[in-house]
Design a protein around this nucleic acid. Structure first.
Length: 482
DNA sequence: CTAGGGTTAG
């Protein structure tokens, strides 16, 4: 293994790659060329440099990363555990969880399992992103220990974030308590507490969030700017601005510096209450503390303007964002798009979408849903269905909101058979219909007197744990007395 | 060379 036996040419190439990687100086194209060059002369010393190149390619084009890995596997260079970590990450980013699992199986066979925590963690993150946190939980609690791979604080944080995203913060809370009682090497840290406090607040469990915050202090874990921003955001959403300001004051007292996310929450909170003088005050405080507005700040401001019927002013902010040093993102476009939709400015909407595509930003679910509901309001079924098809062509599956808008439209036009086939389609796709789907369907069948369908849908709604709203109570009394 | 948290929208 002595360095002396590494041929000079290879060594120079490897050092060159590592240095350039560190300087952030390797693009995907360069990485591919360097990869070809290195693989021809590669030996056991080359794996570090290969990992650097794989990282670059993986970030930009995960599918290509997987094929490069296969070339490494066929060469005489043995992949390291880090190579496998990059591979699992590639598979997951490419949306190929199946390959991620295969890679993981390979890692276990190769005997890397014990040092493969990072690999498992990549996989856990991808599994949680598909809302399969129960499965991720099984991996952490049962499968990883089976391979002598001890889950670490990262594994738990990924799991907690997944649970919170699925509105299961209560379970995360129980697991935190288990971790504390266990007293082992894996204790909750500031990120763990932040994740679960935020999850509890988002589910409206303010009391439990506060208890956990106190528990965090008892355990000697100091809150940071993220902890405080989460709490402030929670208070703002409850319109409890005095409480939010109190937390801000406590932050300053504890010398925890508020950052742009903290101020954004406050700005959003005051806009929700229409208190523009307070917004101005926060902006001044922000700049006094040297915190620059970011793209989110401008999005919040534009959203307020659009919702107040002041799209033209929002557009001025949009047009000046680049010179303010902030590039509009997909949120920015949808905020403005929604504003135009409220004004029924269809021409502006289409120009904006063209601009967004031109600027390399792909329309997402929100963007399509804004379009769908705008045309649905105009009862333009043909256009709506066309957008639906186009959405699928772009590889985006319509979500419950998209279906809700389409079903609502079909029902309001009395096309109940079409509405039901959309409903069945959404069930087939594994989507959960909410009240926004059941309301138009039940009301629609009510108005054409198809009571057996009404009964059927009503029971199904109750089975799914959805409470009838006031519209349904008004249109359809009997089952409520059940 | 690989892994976790907070801000905005329909």
């Amino acid at each position: 293994m002595s360095r002396r036996f590494v041929p000079v040419g290879r060594r120079i190439l490897e050092q060159n790659i590592k240095a350039r990687y560190h300087a952030g100086d390797i693009g995907t194209e360069d990485a591919l060329h360097l990869f070809d060059e290195l693989l021809q002369v590669a030996g056991r010393s080359s794996i570090h440099a290969i990992n650097c190149l794989l990282t670059v390619v993986c970030r930009d084009c995960p599918a290509l990363g997987v094929s490069l890995f296969n070339r490494v596997a066929r060469s005489k260079v043995a992949p390291s555990s880090i190579t496998y970590a990059i591979l699992v990450d590639c598979c997951c980013r490419a949306g190929r969880l199946d390959l991620g699992h295969t890679a993981m199986g390979h890692i276990i066979k190769t005997g890397f399992a014990a040092e493969a925590i990072v690999n498992f963690n990549h996989l856990l993150k991808a599994i949680c992103a598909e809302n399969k946190t129960s499965y991720a939980m099984d991996i952490v609690l049962r499968i990883m220990p089976m391979f002598n791979c001890v889950p670490n604080i990262f594994s738990y944080s990924i799991l907690f974030k997944g649970l919170c995203n699925e509105k299961r913060s209560q379970e995360a809370l129980e697991l935190i308590n288990m971790m504390v009682e266990d007293g082992g090497s894996c204790r909750p840290d500031v990120v763990t507490y932040n994740t679960v406090i935020d999850g509890l607040l988002k589910e409206g469990e303010v009391g439990k969030a506060y208890s956990l915050f106190c528990e965090m202090l008892r355990q000697g874990v100091s809150p940071d700017a993220v902890t405080c921003s989460s709490i402030i955001s929670g208070m703002c959403k409850l319109h409890a601005m005095d409480k939010a300001e109190e937390v801000l004051q406590q932050m300053l007292d504890r010398r925890i510096l508020p950052n742009v996310a903290t101020y954004n929450s406050l700005i959003h909170g005051y806009y929700l209450l229409g208190q523009c003088e307070e917004v101005d005050r926060i902006f001044k405080e922000m700049s006094r503390n040297g915190v620059q507005p970011n793209v989110v700040t401008y999005n919040i401001q534009m959203d307020y303007l659009c919702k107040s019927g002041r799209c033209a002013e929002a557009r001025k902010i949009f047009d000046s964002m680049i010179s303010l040093g902030q590039k509009p993102n997909v949120y920015t476009y949808s905020v403005l798009l929604h504003g135009y939709a409220m004004e029924k400015s269809f021409h502006d909407m289409h120009c904006l979408i063209d601009l967004m595509v031109e600027n390399g930003i792909a329309p997402d679910h929100h963007v399509y849903n804004i379009l769908i509901s705008a045309y649905a309001k105009e009862e333009m079924v043909g256009v709506v269905m066309h957008i639906f098809t186009k959405m699928r062509q772009q590889g985006l599956n319509p979500d419950a909101v998209s279906y809700g808008a389409v079903i609502d439209l079909l029902c309001s036009m009395g096309r109940m058979d079409d509405a039901m086939s959309q409903y069945n389609q959404m069930i087939t796709e594994g989507l959960l219909p909410g009240i926004i789907v059941f309301t138009p369907l039940i009301s629609g069948f009510c108005s054409c007197g198809k009571w057996e369908k009404v009964d059927e849908l009503f029971s199904e709604m109750l089975d799914r744990g959805i409470c009838p709203n006031s519209v349904l109570q008004h249109n359809y009394g009997p089952p409520l007395q059940k």
